[in-house]
């Protein structure tokens, strides 16, 4: 569940999502769920000339299974906190 919690800390931030069909979209992260399905507000396609079928889209639900990458602004990531959380998650059970 660590990645779910991690993405929840990014709610409200501007992110870019690359799908497995090579489409890249940017938008404000609205919500994430356990499958890492995400909902973006005010999406913009990064390459609108190539994908005119997507320029009319406004708010977009993306199925987690079609996501290849999520690009996040580094200033919104606390890498130390993330590393700590990852260590805790993988700590041997006592």
């Amino acid at each position: 569940m660590i990645f779910l919690s991690f993405f929840k800390t990014l709610v409200g931030k501007e992110i870019a999502v690359e799908l497995k069909n090579d489409v890249v979209m940017t938008g404000t992260l609205h919500s994430v769920d356990q499958y890492l399905n995400i909902k973006l507000l005010n999406v913009k396609v990064v390459n609108p000339d190539k994908y005119p079928q997507l320029v009319a889209l406004q708010n977009c639900f993306v199925r987690g299974s079609v996501v290849r990458y999520i690009q996040i602004p580094p200033e919104h990531v606390d890498t130390e906190l993330l590393q700590d959380a990852a260590r805790k998650e993988n700590a041997p059970a006592k």
């Binding site: 069909n21 090579d22 999406v43 009319a56 889209l57 406004q58 977009c60 199925r63 079609v66």
Partner: peptide, 23 residues
């Protein structure tokens, strides 16, 4: 399903364009 979105009817483009790649 890949994406579900609401859209702006005014902004729909009707010109020829390559179809979206498949997954």
């Amino acid at each position: 399903v890949c994406m579900i979105a609401d859209y702006d009817k005014e902004k729909l483009v009707d010109t020829a364009a390559p179809p979206l790649p498949t997954i």
